[in-house]
């Protein structure tokens, strides 16, 4: 993978939300939802972005698409710095970068029928005239592409199941032939058997159309399945980024290791043998993140340095980035096998 293959590059991206209070909306604090995130996505690959709720993974996805104006940092798409473009220039680029939303119930306008939902991006961007034969054919083709009957065009979102709605959302995202799609937890609202349908569809489409995905999820097993590389986020920062196999077999960051061991495996024999490291406590609030390494309050290996100095997100091995003071080739950042950390109980 060469450097010039990079489709999306995110450089020290920050997104802070003000906390307002009082009658006149004074700012009383800041939520550092994304606090300095750097990564790049190659054309045609799927980068998985995992983390627990409130870690800023969705905000990152939205900031890349400028659905949230980044507070600082750069987002480069196909060589162009999006943060420097005017809003009309951004609108011109929108067809190239699309989004698939988590909630298939909220992201489709309940008053629009399926034809209108799927065809709207075409009309907005002046690609086709609404009602023309070309437009009707295109909408039918898109519905067929995602496995829906083109006869559904006149139906409304509330007449569909969750999985079908997500297909409608995918058809809409595909209508403008994007090269990059941010998938924001596209399957977490769906049942297991339907999840597999949607994941397979996304993979098929990637193969057919050469799509690049940023796949945001909290479900590690599904992320591992669909991604080429995976980034792990915690409290607004990246903890680790590596190829999918390496991240699972040789995770360097203690957070990745515990996350890995916390994911239940659908295999009872394996589950019984597995030693799990159970993290203590809850993640701190992003409105009041701890100083130094944000993970040090829950890290079983934290040393003094972790409480004061923010670890650099550095490339330990080719393509394997980690933000941990302890990470080294000798494996100092590995949670020892015998340390089965008990939860707060004992």
């Amino acid at each position: 993978m060469s450097e010039n293959n990079i489709l999306v590059a995110v450089d020290n991206l920050k997104k802070y939300f003000p906390i307002t209070g009082g009658m006149w909306g004074r700012q009383v604090g800041t939520v550092k939802a994304v606090d300095g995130v750097t990564f790049a996505i190659q054309a045609g690959e799927t980068l998985g972005l995992v983390g627990e709720s409130g870690c800023g993974k969705s905000t990152t996805g939205r900031a890349i698409l400028l659905l949230h104006e980044p507070t600082s940092g750069r987002v480069t798409f196909d060589g162009e710095d999006l943060t420097k473009l005017s809003s009309s220039e951004v609108r011109k680029l929108r067809p190239k970068m699309q989004m698939i939303f988590q909630d298939p119930y909220a992201s489709l306008n309940p008053r629009h029928n399926v034809g209108k939902i799927v065809g709207e991006p075409l009309v907005i961007n002046g690609v086709m005239k609404k009602g023309s034969q070309e437009y009707k054919d295109k909408v039918a083709e898109l519905l067929k592409l995602v496995g829906l009957d083109p006869g559904y065009v006149r139906r409304f979102p509330h007449e569909f199941s969750g999985g079908q709605r997500q297909r409608i959302g995918i058809a809409r995202a595909l209508s403008l032939h994007p090269s990059f799609i941010v998938c924001d937890e596209p399957i977490s609202a769906l049942d297991v058997s339907i999840q597999a349908q949607v994941v397979n569809l996304l993979q098929d489409l990637q193969e057919q159309m050469g799509l690049t995905y940023l796949f945001i999820a909290h479900d590690l097993s599904m992320v591992k399945h669909i991604s080429h590389r995976i980034a792990v986020m915690y409290l607004g920062r990246l903890m680790e980024l590596a190829g999918r196999i390496e991240l699972f077999e040789d995770p360097l960051h203690p957070y990745t290791q515990s996350l890995n061991s916390a994911v239940p495996v659908p295999n009872p024999r394996l589950e019984r043998q597995r030693k799990s490291f159970i993290l203590k406590g809850d993640p701190p609030s992003p409105a009041n993140p701890p100083p130094g390494c944000v993970f040090h309050t829950r890290c079983p290996l934290a040393i003094n340095e972790c409480t004061t100095r923010v670890p650099e997100f550095r490339e330990m091995r080719p393509g394997h980035f980690v933000a941990c003071h302890l990470a080294d080739e000798a494996g100092s950042s590995k949670i020892p096998e015998q340390t089965v950390l008990a939860s707060v109980v004992d």
Binding site: L67, Q98, L108, R172
Partner: peptide, 9 residues
Amino acid sequence: YVESAIAAG
């Protein structure tokens, strides 16, 4: 759906 419309340009 409003966010989705913005994303569509």
